[in-house]
Amino acid sequence: TPAEQLLSKCPWKEYKSDSGKPYYYNSQTKESRWAKPKELEDLEGYQNTIV
């Protein structure tokens, strides 16, 4: 779907730490963070409005 294509192009991906806590990693900037990036939230919100 178009929304899945947008998400696949987003540099932010969700991973799980050893303790199972989700964290987010940007493959372009090599940045990681615990809080979900706004860019990823926006894309997921867009995906939910299409489905």
Rank of each mutant, 00 (worst) to 15 (best):
N48W: 00
W12P: 09
T49D: 13
E41I: 06
K30F: 04
E31A: 04
K21D: 06
T49K: 15
S27V: 12
P22R: 06
K30L: 06
S8F: 06
E31D: 05
R33N: 13
S17T: 12
D18W: 03
V51G: 15
P2E: 15
N26D: 02
S32L: 09
E39L: 03
L40E: 14
A35N: 13
Q47P: 09
E41S: 11
P2D: 15
E39M: 08
Y23W: 10
D18K: 08
L7D: 15
Y15M: 15
K16T: 08
T49G: 13
Q47F: 02
I50S: 14
C10I: 11
D42T: 11
K30I: 01
Y24T: 02
L7E: 13
L7P: 06
S19L: 06
Q28Y: 07
L40D: 02
Y23H: 02
Y23M: 05
T1Q: 03
G20M: 06
L40Y: 08
S8R: 11
V51R: 15
R33E: 02
S17Q: 04
Q28M: 13
E44V: 06
Y46S: 14
Y24E: 02
S8V: 12
I50H: 14
L43T: 10
Q5N: 14
L7H: 14
L40I: 07
K13W: 03
L43F: 12
P2V: 11
W34I: 13
P2A: 10
T29I: 01
S8E: 14
P22F: 07
K13Q: 14
P2W: 09
C10N: 09
E31L: 01
N26Y: 00
Q5S: 15
S27D: 03
G20T: 03
Y24H: 02
W34A: 13
Q47C: 11
K38R: 10
W12N: 04
T29H: 09
C10W: 08
K9W: 02
R33P: 03
C10A: 06
A35I: 11
K21H: 05
P11T: 12
E4I: 05
Y23L: 04
K13M: 13
E39G: 05
V51F: 15
G20A: 00
P2I: 15
T29M: 03
Y15A: 09
P22Q: 10
A35T: 14
L7A: 14
D42I: 09
Q47M: 08
E44K: 09
S8M: 03
Q47L: 08
Y25L: 03
L7W: 14
S27Q: 03
D42E: 08
P22N: 08
G45H: 13
P2Q: 12
G20Y: 01
P37F: 00
K13N: 10
